[in-house]
Amino acid sequence: MSERPLPRGADAPLDVPQVIVVTGVMAAGKSTVSQLLAERFTRAVHLRGDEFRRVVVRGRVDMSPHGDPEAERQLALRHRITARTADTYAQAGFTVVVQDLFVGATLAPFLEQVGSRPLSLVMLAPDVGTVMQREAERTKVGYGDLWSIRDFDHKVRTETPHIGLWLDSSQQTPDETVDEIARRLPEARIA
């Protein structure tokens, strides 16, 4: 585990209990960056929202580009559980790095459910070519027949509110991305 502390900003101390949401397209580097970011804090939790999807043993309906009401209901449930869990950890004195897909109209409702402050948002936004390369190199498949990388990227960039820190991490290693997030965390603060 890394012991590098986050740099202190002039606006507010950064190593205080808070919630930092890390999102972006599939294969943007959310898992790696979120883990490394959490390791920078003295007391931290890396909360993977997708874990709440995976615990559904029977009856799970995954999201698709075709819009299924049950899938959307389950996604909203997952986000509600994630928000409550993040608040519980933050209230116990932890910095919580929440990692999940918050795309388009799902972002604002999630953020409204998080009561802990400070609240920050980081959108990892590497270019399409970089996402294609990363997708080809990883073991899990996020796109396949249902999702096009180019279409999903377009949806994120055009339908997701441009709040917080949008970071083009195309030319960065995960450590460089985390260094930039740490340096610019005050810009990511939304509440």
Rank of each mutant, 00 (worst) to 15 (best):
G67F: 06
D68R: 02
D68N: 15
D68K: 02
P69G: 06
P69Q: 12
P69N: 05
P69W: 09
E70L: 10
E70M: 07
E70Q: 07
E70P: 05
A71H: 12
A71I: 14
A71L: 08
E72I: 15
R73Q: 12
Q74T: 06
L75W: 00
A76E: 08
A76K: 12
A76W: 10
A76M: 14
H79F: 01
H79M: 03
H79D: 05
R80C: 02
I81V: 09
I81F: 11
I81E: 03
I81G: 07
A83M: 07
T85Y: 07
T85N: 10
A86G: 04
A86M: 01
Y89W: 13
Q91F: 11
A92S: 15
A92G: 14
G93R: 13
G93V: 11
F94M: 13
T95C: 10
T95R: 09
T95M: 03
V96R: 06
V98N: 07
D100Y: 03
D100P: 01
L101F: 12
F102E: 01
F102C: 05
G104L: 00
A105L: 03
A105N: 03
A105Y: 00
L107P: 02
L107V: 01
P109S: 00
F110Q: 00
L111R: 02
L111P: 04
Q113K: 06
Q113T: 01
V114Y: 00
G115V: 02
S116Y: 15
S116H: 09
R117D: 10
L119C: 05
L119A: 08
S120Q: 08
S120Y: 05
V122N: 10
M123R: 08
M123Q: 06
M123F: 11
D127T: 15
D127Q: 14
V128D: 10
V128W: 03
G129I: 03
G129E: 09
G129Q: 07
T130N: 05
T130F: 15
V131R: 06
M132V: 04
E135M: 03
A136Q: 11
A136M: 06
E137F: 12
R138S: 14
K140Y: 15
V141C: 04
G142D: 06
G142Y: 12
Y143I: 09
Y143K: 13
G144H: 11
D145M: 13
